[in-house]
Design a protein around this nucleic acid. Structure first.
Lengths: 208, 208
DNA sequence: GACGAATTGGACAAGACTGTCTAAATTTGT
DNA sequence: ACAAATTTAGACAGTCTTGTCCAATTCGTC
């Protein structure tokens, strides 16, 4: 394991103040001196860890957004699959969990570092996702007022049942992820499925 | 400020390992010896802090749930007002922010302590909220499949736009809370407003 | 195999923190 | 006003951590 990876693990487990360099070195399988040679001091090492995690998480998120269902066959199934991918590859994986915890624990201590994350991460993520939802709406698959709001609500809904697990730093099972995504997407579609067309599926359902 | 309150503040700001007793004593306006006299050692003090926060937060949450709109006049307005109360009195206030941060940062270090919180806090909160939604559905104001799912999704939706602020430990402004609650409740009602009754408001809307 | 670069283990000083102890000062109850 | 209980300030030992230094060893490359 690389020094930065080991440091990420220890910083997350013990907190910044509780992490000690000896433990990081041992976990990385190198000597303490090597850690100092590579990264200078504890604070620089911490910054390197956050930058590394931010970069990898953003890459994962954008790769996943690229797989958003633009021409959906079964919209519900496609959105559920997308939500599961998002969770598995970006939010529940090692990098996602670690970054989230570091932001929560140390965000106030390094305002500029996490402001940077905020702009390049969630800011751009939500824009990108909002653009995809806008496209679905334009193509007539959804009826959306504000795509930015819809994007944030989509993420909130598909993660609604995983909040507690995330809070305690755990990893939800595959079934929990699937169930939360399924419930979330169904509610999302109940709210945003195309309603205005008189020939729409939703109107037909109401008449039945 | 009491010792426990000062300790809560310092533990949150510095993390468990980074918090030092001298600082807590100074912030509480007592001598270090008094802290040891009252609470034994650092770990016992930490446990006392978490129990205190848990108790106060639960009390606040249940008091707020008691104000859930059972016989709504304007359902949308009533639910928005309820969501804002919930945020202001339970989630964004000092106790709520502190407890959340301690759970996130130290949850894995004290599994039994936070398991206790989990049962008495979110577990019972969600049940209570689900019961209220079930009642609204029974009275014909909503069309809900699983009240537990609906309750979790309600909370997720009304907080959807505050996630980032919460993550960084900040306090959203009154306007942000109101906007998030408004958008969240509207989406919630789009999804769960009564649809099945042929004379319902929703059906009429679709016909218009 | 040989040479330069990187890594290692250990020693080390400086500082910080916890938890204890004690004698003096202060508060509290009566 | 007096006695008991509590609080205080400070000293203290013991432990831990950071960051530096250095000589010995290993590694990569020619």
């Amino acid at each position: 394991m690389s020094v930065v990876d080991a440091a990420a693990s220890v910083f997350c487990r013990e907190g910044y103040a509780g992490a000690n360099i000896d433990l990081i070195a041992a976990e990385a399988g190198v000597s303490r001196q090597t850690v100092y040679n590579h990264h200078g001091d504890k604070e620089k090492l911490f910054v390197a860890v956050v930058r590394d995690l931010t970069e990898r998480c953003n890459a994962g998120i954008f790769a996943t957004i690229a797989s958003f269902p633009d021409q959906p066959g079964d919209l519900e199934a496609d959105l559920i699959a997308f939500a599961v991918r998002m969770n598995r590859n970006c939010i529940c994986n090692r990098d996602g969990r670690f970054l989230r915890k570091l932001i929560q624990a140390e965000g106030e201590r390094y305002p500029e570092l996490f402001a940077e994350w905020r702009e390049q991460g969630p800011g751009r993520t939500w824009s990108a996702l909002a653009a995809r939802f806008a496209r679905l709406a334009f193509a007539g698959h959804l009826s959306i007022g504000d795509p930015d709001v819809a994007a944030r609500q989509f993420l909130a809904l598909v993660n609604a049942e995983l909040q507690i697990t995330f809070m305690l730093g755990g990893t939800p099972t595959e079934e929990e992820v699937l169930r939360s995504a399924t419930n979330g997407v169904r509610t999302f579609l109940s709210a945003f499925a195309r309603k205005k067309s008189p020939a729409g599926k939703q109107a037909a359902l109401v008449h039945a």
